[in-house]
């Protein structure tokens, strides 16, 4: 079994500091956040430049080069609503440490992102949704199937698609949490890989409760086969939970100093 893959979410234009840094092409705040996440154990970094309608292609290329040149060709997830920007980013992307990840396709309007990933030999995050949140697991699995077929029609390896079951917020959709876990199990049973924005689970909960909910959900999801997540790697408790779960699943070998390595 391979170990759980952590995609660091903190270079995101929703953060005012990042938005400003993108606008000014100011490397320092971005490099700082990249370093923090890599030091904390991130495997991939998500590079979210927002809608970037105006200068997306140039901005994405700038960001990809900035991160890869400073961090030994760190593998990246390219995240924007501007498809041309993703394609431009892949053009300058170095694959030494792993394929680029296109973030993201869905079974609705964004299905073209899968075609883009296939055409560029990239991986792709595929949201199991069409319009808004899937009502139940029948819908989730139907979308999963559609996305899988679309990717394979375009020549993708099934394991190059990371299926996102869509985590739901506990405050409001508490009764749906086990559905998500069940979906992860079903997708895993098909031999496919999964990912997702885990922190959605605890959205709106008090600050001291959020890590507890995130960690518990992550551990339960990993038992169902969950294979990667888009998270804040600087959340120490979460990263320690991942390590502990990887040990229990025999994905990594135990040693007394395992947390310090």
């Amino acid at each position: 079994m391979s170990k759980f893959m952590v995609i660091g979410e903190r270079i995101h234009c929703i953060s005012p500091a990042m938005r400003q840094a993108f606008a000014d092409r100011n490397p320092d705040p971005i490099l700082l956040r990249a370093k923090e996440q890599l030091d904390a154990g991130a495997d991939y970094l998500d590079l979210n430049i927002g809608p970037a309608e105006r200068d997306g292609e140039e901005l994405m290329q700038w960001g990809v080069k900035l991160l890869q040149e400073n961090f030994n060709n760190v593998p990246l997830a390219l995240d924007t609503a501007n498809m041309k920007a993703i394609e431009a980013g892949i053009k300058v992307y170095n694959r030494e440490k792993g394929k680029p990840i296109v973030n993201s396709a869905d079974a609705g309007d964004r299905i073209g992102y899968l075609d883009l990933a296939a055409a560029n030999d990239a991986m792709c995050i595929a949201l199991c949704s069409k319009e808004g949140v899937p009502a139940n697991n029948d819908e989730r699995m139907e979308y999963c199937q559609e996305l899988l077929e679309r990717g394979m029609e375009h020549g993708m390896e099934p394991t190059d698609i990371l299926f996102d079951p869509l985590f739901l917020v506990i405050k409001g959709m508490q009764d749906k949490q086990c559905d998500v876990l069940e979906a992860i199990q079903m997708i895993t049973d098909m031999g496919l890989l999964t990912t997702g924005g885990l922190s959605n689970v605890s959205n709106g909960a008090p600050k001291h409760i959020r890590p507890l909910l995130d960690c518990a959900m992550l551990a339960m999801a990993m038992q169902c086969g969950f294979s990667s997540a888009i998270v804040n790697p600087c959340d120490k408790r979460l990263m320690e939970t991942i390590t502990a779960c990887d040990i229990i699943k025999n994905n990594i070998l135990y040693a007394d100093s395992v947390l310090e390595f």
Binding site: L253, Y254, A255, D256, S257, V258, E260, F261
Partner: peptide, 14 residues
Amino acid sequence: DINLAKQLNILLTQ
């Protein structure tokens, strides 16, 4: 002792 093998390598590296 496989876990000790890993542990010692970590300790020496640290």
